[in-house]
Nucleic acid binder design. Structure first.
Lengths: 341, 341
DNA sequence: CGATCCGGTACTTAAAACACA
DNA sequence: GTGTGTTTTAAGTACCGGATC
């Protein structure tokens, strides 16, 4: 271990191994015609000197990146955390790294994040757009010719590469199941009214209601944050109003958890049937075990990565890559179903 | 918008503005003596050409990085997610970005991650070591003279820059409170036996038991994964054994959630007093609202960032920077306390 | 403002090794 | 033993986009 701080470069290794810089470079990348003898000599020199490859310098010269930017609204949300895991795992398989920026629900911060990622010369970006995103963000990215994929939320009237679950179907599945239970009055709790996915889910809800010969307009609509507080506030509002609907459809499991708390806080005697959304890991541990719409966050992350990788493989392709997955109803007990045996 | 793919460089901007490359560089960094008129001309040229700064090239020349590596076991865990948010927010304030690697509980993957981050020439690394980490990981990092900080878990007999909560105190606080409730038989559920923090918390538990003139050795010790499954398995084991202890101290809130589910699955008539750990956001929504030990994940992340930033400011300092925060007992109802008014 | 440098990569050129007449 | 052609191996050098003097 030398106490010297100067970084060890190709030249140092070359000198020590008695070869040229170029040869060392070939050995590192395992290409070119270099005899096995010199290969070994170079490798020995590398480890003796504690050489560390400089990816930045390499990608500058090569004009290519081995990093992908990820813009996400909240890493601490288990759903996005899981999404991120899937994304990261798949990118790692192609030896790409993730540069992550956590923006919160701020479109301006997201635009700034994308600009910064471009300065980092990322190979592409994967984005969960903030609730209030406008087509401007989409345009910014599309005009920059940067490979990109939007995840779980899309911006209306701004087609992009996109990976997400079929929200309409999700809303439909939840509602149909509740109808089968005999529910006749419905509320949709939480979720910012600005996100398209909320409208889509509500469309699904209304479609199911119409199919059950109920008035699709009768649903009580309570937008709010997509977290515990949102559920708490929405349920409180319903409690204030006096009469509770039979069924709650929640924009996320977190919203459902908040709704439960609000109801229990006032010792509500008869809990409505409740369905969550996302099926995060605690949902099955909840009391009662939470019936939810599973969107397979991990898989969505993988698909997003694959979408991006395809763009990296065919940079000039003109087509828009879109993957819509089918969410699934995970039946547990909060909807009124009996415990599984 | 030109359809040309070639990247716009300083030279292009310089040409257009009728100045030299160097001048443009000065304008970008807002330094040097350049007249306001020229500055404007350069700025105009930049935006007209759609110039994008190349941080990679700059940091190659400047021999400094604006990225910090983060090695984390599981982003999807709300506790680590929150930690990450605090870290990221604080680093962003110093205009540093996060390169995140999700390793799972695999020490080898962590070592590989650190090696890769070094190739990326990160300014430093922040790490949550995997359960089975050995001093080898610590040595690898220390020998590389890379600024670093370990978070929430440390490796015994391998002192490093470290930020974490006082686990002994956490175990003590939980136990003392349960003793005040009159509990006399205890179980500690979940958490891999390989992590030091688990031993520390158990020490705290034992200290409290001794203080309450109970046998410190009598505690039932059930190690396992620190998630819902771990809690499920541990509680099931206790149920099999026949007699349930009065009090459960869980290694994480997730473990507590799993334990609750296991108990409810068999319609357990009298639930033990249960205390969780971490105080993740859903804890307060749980039924009953979960009493937990709060370690303020967000703040820990911030402190880790500050620790790292201090090292970046004084690279040659010989001292080991350690911050131990005081966890707090958050009293709710799962311990047996009455609901807050 | 021009020259040089940061640490790699890519392309060109040349020396050496081996084949076969 | 010499000459020519081909292949293997390695060296030389311009260059990537900024920073510094």
């Amino acid at each position: 271990m030398s106490t010297e701080a100067r970084t060890v470069t190709l030249i140092d290794v070359a000198e020590r191994a008695g070869v040229s810089r170029a040869t060392v470079s070939l050995v590192i990348r395992d290409t070119g015609r270099v005899s096995e003898a010199t290969r070994q000599r170079v490798r020995t020199a590398m480890s003796e000197l504690g050489y560390v490859y400089n990816r930045g310098a390499a990608s500058l010269r090569r004009q290519s990146a081995d990093t992908v930017g990820v813009v996400i609204t909240n890493v601490a949300n288990p759903f996005f955390g899981e999404l991120l895991r899937g994304l990261e795992a798949e990118l790692t398989r192609s030896s790409l790294s993730c540069l992550i920026v956590n923006t919160g629900q701020d479109p301006a911060a997201q635009a700034a994040a994308v600009a910064e990622l471009r300065e980092h010369r990322v190979a592409g970006v994967a984005i969960v757009p903030a609730s209030g995103s406008t087509p401007a963000l989409v345009d910014q990215i599309r005009d920059s010719h940067l490979p990109h994929v939007f995840m779980t939320r899309y911006v209306k009237d701004a087609p992009t590469h996109y990976v997400g679950a079929d929200d309409q179907l999700g809303g439909y599945l939840a509602t149909r199941h509740l109808l089968e239970h005999g529910a006749s009055t419905f509320a949709y709790l939480g979720g910012p009214s600005a996100v398209q996915s909320r409208w889509d889910r509500l469309d699904g809800v209304r479609r199911a209601l119409a199919g059950g010969s109920l008035d699709p307009g009768a649903i009580i609509d309570l937008p709010g944050p997509s977290n515990g507080d949102g559920g708490l506030a929405a349920a409180d509002q319903l409690l204030q109003a006096g009469s509770l609907p039979d069924a709650f459809i929640c924009h996320s499991d977190q919203v459902a958890f908040g709704a439960f708390r609000a109801l229990r806080r006032v010792n509500c005697d008869r809990l409505p049937r409740i369905v969550g959304y996302d099926d995060i890991p605690v949902a099955r541990l909840w009391e009662p075990p939470l019936t939810s719409i599973s969107t397979q966050a991990h898989e969505l992350g993988q698909l997003a990565a694959q979408n991006l990788l395809r763009q990296l493989g065919a940079p000039t392709s003109r087509e828009t890559l879109t993957t819509i997955t089918k969410p699934e109803l995970v039946v547990r007990e909060s909807c009124g179903c009996p415990p599984a045996p």
